[in-house]
Write a protein that binds this DNA or RNA. Structure first.
Lengths: 226, 226
DNA sequence: TATTGGAATATTGCATACACATTGGCTGCA
DNA sequence: TGCAGCCAATGTGTATGCAATATTCCAATA
């Protein structure tokens, strides 16, 4: 009986719960410090405690929830300060990646990066935020790959995945895609010159600007919390 | 001595399994690509599949094992190259931390860092590797704290925890503690001067030297794999 | 009245049982 | 002989039950 047009068992139940909880936490629907009772969550999602537990474990690894042995899980404090802290790490990681990439990328990789950047011009011109978001992802992904360090690629992707929920609202800010693309242009220039330190500096600024676009959102979370 | 893994239920069963598996993977007892059958592992540890699954999930998050949905877990490829990659990320994270710390640490934190460094002189002189290992941990931990970014502290600690198994054999290398302490001295100097970029550079060198101490070990893993 | 001890409750940690997907092999047909 | 499709076996994903431990509340005592 698949009356509901669900995505089917293509996605694991525990993954669905994980994504749903991550969304509720990042949007502020679940307030910081809230107890995450396994049984209750299981009831809410029509699942048993087992997939809920798996989801909570993974969320704990990403820092969205805090697990205390035999004392259950609570939503991690998600103050504006903590969101900024997460962005700062994100920015530093991105800066590290582009610094390494600027030194290590092959000529082919460099021109591929430039190509992605040029493709994004259309998306910005048409105001297609979703398309720009995809290209934005590919842009940063190309930089990760440019480090020629598979472990860094994995971890950077994982971190970016964690921040995805925050980022969603971010690009909608008026004028943000244009400015983002302009900053990408500067990044491409620095990478082309092989100037890793400069690229890292620009990336920090780029990420800081992106996080600033979230300030209103952060304050909103703040208000809900107290 | 509470440093010894307590047989009591003080530590969660899933954590014991996680640590044991991490050890076996990093020491090469479990070869890359090996299937990690949940039932078999459960039998080996005298546990059921449930805590084994939790352990595997956490190991997957740290990159030691790879999980393919409905197809089980396998030991991640652990070539010498991959070990070096993990160390590179570790080094970059440490460098990032000390760069931020050199700029942000309070005077109290700076002198506390220097104090830890001075305390370690005794341990080195007595050849007490375990004691030096503890102080080494506290030294790096103080640097994490110095970033004044709680999220970075968490993630840096988690990463260092993952590398712990590798690090264990590392300090045993003859002369390594002396050299390590000398390098720490230079790091303290740079932090005292507030020279973040220089501290970061020194930290990368420090971590690189530490990883070099593992080269023999890495080759050994390599040989076992093929 | 405040504090402490203990019992009751609730919730996690672990074990076991079941359902279903994936895989490998086997059979039948081209 | 080779390939397609089916079937069984293996093993993961999920549900449920049990045991151990943390929390809470109440009562007894100082």
């Amino acid at each position: 009986m698949k009356s509901e047009p669900d995505v089917g068992p293509a996605m694991l139940l525990s993954d669905r719960i994980r994504l749903a909880l991550a969304d509720e936490i990042t949007t502020g629907a679940l307030l910081p410090g809230a107890q995450l009772d396994e049984q209750l969550l299981g009831d809410r999602f029509g699942a048993s405690r087992t997939p809920v537990r798996e989801a909570l474990r993974q969320l704990a690894a990403s820092g969205l929830v805090e697990m205390r042995p035999r004392r259950g899980a609570v939503v991690a404090e998600m103050t504006a300060e903590r969101i900024f802290e997460m962005f700062e790490l994100s920015a530093e990681i991105e800066a590290m990646c582009i610094r390494l990439a600027a030194w290590r990328m092959t000529p082919v990789e460099r021109s591929a990066l430039r190509q992605i950047h040029e493709d994004s011009a259309f998306a910005v011109a048409r105001g297609d935020v979703d398309e720009y978001d995809r290209l934005n992802w590919r842009f940063h992904d190309a930089i990760y790959q440019g480090t020629h360090n598979a472990y860094i690629v994995e971890q950077a992707k994982a971190l970016r995945e964690r921040m995805a929920a925050f980022r969603r609202a971010q690009l909608r800010k008026s004028g943000r895609p244009e400015r983002s693309r302009h900053e990408h242009g500067e990044l491409v220039e620095a990478v082309m010159r092989g100037d890793g330190e400069e690229a890292a500096k620009l990336m920090r600024a780029h990420m800081f600007n992106a996080s600033s676009a979230l300030e209103g959102f952060a304050r909103q979370v703040e208000k809900k919390s107290y």
